[in-house]
């Protein structure tokens, strides 16, 4: 089991985002989180990553988790090459960053300030593919991607599920149906 949520609840101030949520994820599984804006999808992903603590309940995680926020977070004064080299070194992972940038059609030496939203999303996917986490936590990964980018996303998700588990929050039901083994609906707590 890569991830297990045991009756997890989260509250900000007096407002409950969700209550008593239980969920488990195995290697090779893709779970989609569906729900309207404000239903707690991003909060849940951050809890799963360990970036937030639950108000009640327990999150049990095995292996390395990485979280892809929406929009992806990058230093705009670094280039794609510099970003990937730093990430590979900092995570202690070996990977072919040049091949990744070629595959995702990204210029290696352009500062990220000049990247479009879609290019940043592609770079974020390339980064995840290189870092190979055990648990992929993706917040609206389809946003800002064009047709080609969406095709790459589907490929990346297929590759990810070979040896990892994926949780993705999305508003795109078609994407969820195409890639997810099951869906979890979030609504008002």
């Amino acid at each position: 089991m890569l991830l297990r949520l045991e009756a997890v609840s989260k509250r900000f101030g007096q407002d409950w985002v969700f209550r008593d949520l239980s969920l488990s994820l195995k290697r090779g599984e893709v779970v989609a989180l569906l729900g309207p804006n404000g239903s707690g999808k991003t909060t849940l992903l951050r809890l799963m990553a360990g970036l937030l603590k639950p108000t009640r309940g327990r999150v049990v995680r095995q292996g390395r988790a990485l979280f892809l926020p929406n929009p992806p977070a990058f230093h705009r004064r670094l280039t794609a090459r510099e970003h990937l080299l730093f990430d590979l070194g900092f995570h202690g992972v070996a990977g072919d960053w040049e091949a990744a940038l070629t595959r995702f059609a990204l210029p290696p030496d352009l500062p990220l300030a000049a990247f479009s939203s879609g290019m940043k999303k592609r770079l974020a996917l390339a980064r995840l593919l290189l870092l190979r986490p055990d648990l992929w936590l993706l917040d609206e990964p389809e946003t800002a991607l064009d047709q080609e980018g969406r095709k790459l996303l589907l490929e990346v998700l297929e590759e990810a599920r070979r040896d990892a588990g994926v949780v993705l929050a999305t508003h795109d039901r078609a994407l969820a149906e195409a890639v997810a083994d099951r869906a979890v609906g979030l609504g008002a707590a």
């Binding site: 990553a49 977070a73 900092f90 995570h91």
Partner: peptide, 12 residues
């Protein structure tokens, strides 16, 4: 400013 602190925190 760049919202990148989470990335550092998720480093093993």
């Amino acid at each position: 400013e760049e919202n990148t602190l989470d990335d550092l925190l998720l480093t093993p």
